[in-house]
Amino acid sequence: MSLAASTRWRQPSILPGFGLAFGTTLTALCLIVLIPLTALMLRAAGAGWADIVAIASSPRTLAALRLSFGAALIAALVNTVFGLLIAWILVRYEFPGRRLIDAAVDLPFALPTAVAGISLSAIYAPNGWVGSFANQLGFQIAYTPLGVMVALIFIGLPFVVRSVQPVLAESERSIEEAAALLGASRLRTVFRVILPAVAPAVLTGFVLAFARAVGEYGSVIFIAGNIPMVSEIAPLLIVIKLEQFDYAGAAVIGMMMLIVSFVMILVLNLVQAWGRERLGHV
């Protein structure tokens, strides 16, 4: 029975400053993340059980949540494919304007989301450049769930590109040469050798893009049209509740978003950790 060992809650380390660093981290985390979230939880709990159930199960809330998470998921998937492609092109090919495209990838980060939203809706509205084409083909982009996705794709794009790019750049050329000399076709090399190696980075990019898309507000409200039950996202519903001084209702929806997001991100992180253990790196 080694009491000393069981009460040791941290591994001894030769790196000094654990106490200070850990204390600062904990304080910052509390002030910035934990206390506000706790306040949110308390506010939601303050609504009373019956109200919570009523708000949480109201069709409008469920539709908004479904749209928010569904559109975010699809947008993140689209971004995964295109982000991977863009990262691939930026890393593997030399072409004029490469640096320009490389820089342009970051623009969705830098642009105020409202600006993005307004320009997107101008282009995708039925009388806009792209929107008018779509209109002729018989469907509408702006002011529908499709518009929500367009906005979410726009703001999430940099995440996948920036997560994958460094890993792809680091992957050795000799790995591909080895596969080719062993007789693998190009397709097999890409799908069996290159992509599995960047998969953890792709997953990271996916999680980031997804998380960002779930919480996005500014760019979406301009292009979504915000029709209740159709193109109204959950963050907007929260703002609407706030404007009606229904703080508890807003808190309940916020809480639901928080829980769903947390569970999804946790699961993805566990997948990530499992992969890392298997590969011993990345």
Partner: peptide, 18 residues
Amino acid sequence: LRDRRIGFVFQSYALFKH
């Protein structure tokens, strides 16, 4: 490339890590 039947060992080994 396949018909050349070349066994190549790279300096960095170039093993497939996954």
